[in-house]
């Protein structure tokens, strides 16, 4: 069973009455226990593809299936539930709440997961903080962390509700080489432990860690 599947996917935008095609006839499957790298030039449609997989955007035509469930006709609340349970996001700019500590940032997604109570939230947060090696920084605010540390917090937050899919948009874009390697190693480890990890990146370093590389050119997968 594919974790994610796009069938005959098209995405168009209307700009000043002109149709702009962003994704053209996308047919792709993403499996568990694999790390995928989506490469391409700026404007090739990589981030749009990631937004669609992450239910933040919708296909103009075609189907998106997550765990064999068709997403396109789902209501907003149902899509939100899928994002909460199935998908973890990692961004280039980390997107941490600057007014919350490391612990609080990691806990944020857990508050809407009915499977958690106060005790299990704290236990899970402890586990994630240890996993990313930030025990000594748990009460610090994002402005007190380095870029690499912030991204590790973001990864921990992405894992808060045990999602099986991790979507990372240029996760190492703002990091130096050492931190880039650390982050990629964490993401690789996650894929080896059963998750489907999809990374959009310009960096060739990502290719070294990817099980499969997809090239997007002018909205088409090569």
């Amino acid at each position: 069973m594919s974790k994610i599947e796009i069938i005959n996917g098209y995405k168009e935008y209307l700009k000043k009455k002109e149709k702009i095609s962003v994704l053209d006839n996308i047919n792709v499957k993403f499996e568990k226990e694999k790390l995928y790298a989506i490469m391409g030039e700026s404007g090739s449609g990589k981030t749009t593809l990631l937004n669609i997989i992450g239910t933040l955007d919708t296909l103009t035509q075609g189907k998106l299936l997550i765990n064999d469930k068709e997403i396109i006709n789902l209501k907003d609340e149902e899509k939100a539930k899928i994002r909460m349970k199935e998908i973890g996001f990692v961004f280039q700019n980390f997107y941490l709440n600057p007014n919350m500590t490391v612990e609080e940032n990691i806990m944020q997604p857990m508050y809407i997961n009915p499977e958690y109570n106060r005790i299990s939230m704290e236990e899970k947060t402890e586990e994630l903080i240890k996993m990313v090696g930030l025990e000594s920084r748990r009460t610090h605010y994002p402005k007190e962390l380095s870029g690499g540390e912030e991204q590790r917090v973001a990864i921990a937050r992405a894992l808060a509700n045990n999602p099986e899919i991790i979507l990372a948009d240029e996760p190492t874009g703002n990091l130096d080489k050492n931190n880039e390697i650390k982050i990629l190693e964490i993401l690789k480890d996650l894929s080896q432990k059963g998750r489907c990890v999809i990374i959009v990146s310009h960096s060739n370093k990502v290719i070294e860690y990817a099980d499969k590389v997809l090239n997007l050119k002018e909205g088409k997968l090569e």
């Binding site: 992450g54 933040l56 539930k81 994002r83 909460m84 349970k85 998908i87 997107y95 809407i112 937050r157």
Partner: peptide, 16 residues
């Protein structure tokens, strides 16, 4: 705005 958008991505519904 950015914090609210983050909540949306994390799976918070619009009503929440």
């Amino acid at each position: 705005k950015e914090n609210h958008k983050l909540l949306y991505i994390l799976g918070y519904s619009k009503s929440k």
